[in-house]
């Protein structure tokens, strides 16, 4: 879906403090780094409170990345918390053909209309909260979102995401790791692309 051969791909994450958007952006960077890309992952630091809106960023490129400013015109926007579709202005600074990945229980087509996306935009909708409630018994939407992102970075196999996640979280019990793995694969399977 994205082409990292030409220039730098920029990602902006909208999440809430404590939800794991910062970790998810770090994991995405690590997976892509292991696939040979140049990467950055950095959060925007404000007052660190649980539940407060936060942003995190990635840059991905085939050549070394020098700029270190915040991302103003992201190619990809990930909305980790459904309530941020309204309040965080996810399309801010985006070109018409940006890619959006949204954690939402809503129908993808309805959401797309509500977000007033341009015709050339692409939207991936996945109910990551429900998936993790079912698989982990907790609202930790990272794993399904990363699974869904494997549609976007389609030169990286979903297994690279799944394996990295298990390696990174090696301290967790095998049962929890397996649940996360299922959540990630379900995120890929259940993402609706419109």
């Amino acid at each position: 879906m994205v082409d990292t051969m030409n220039g730098t791909i920029e990602v902006r994450w909208h999440g809430r403090g404590g939800q794991g958007a910062k970790s998810a952006s770090a994991i995405l960077a690590e997976v892509l780094f292991e696939e040979g890309k140049h990467v950055q992952a950095f959060p925007e630091y404000g007052a660190e409170r649980q539940g407060a809106p936060i942003r995190a960023y990635n840059r991905v490129s085939n050549s070394p990345i020098r700029r270190r400013c915040g991302v103003q015109n992201p190619d990809i926007v990930v909305v980790v918390d459904p309530t941020l579709v309204e309040s965080a202005n996810p399309s801010e600074g985006c070109a018409d053909d940006a890619i959006y990945l949204v954690n939402t229980p809503e129908d993808a087509k309805i959401l797309r209309k509500r977000m007033k996306l341009a015709d050339s935009a692409r939207l991936l909708a996945v109910d990551a909260t429900r998936i993790t409630l079912e698989e982990l018994g907790q609202n930790k939407p990272n794993a399904p979102l990363l699974g869904a992102l494997s549609h976007v970075f389609d030169d990286v196999p979903v297994e690279s995401f799944a394996n990295h996640f298990s390696k990174k979280m090696a301290k967790l019990s095998p049962k929890v790791l397996e649940a996360n793995r299922r959540a990630m694969l379900r995120g890929r399977e259940e993402a609706v692309i419109v």
Partner: peptide, 12 residues
Amino acid sequence: QDGFITSHCYEP
């Protein structure tokens, strides 16, 4: 090094 910009940016 620059606080947050460098200190908290993950990179290779």
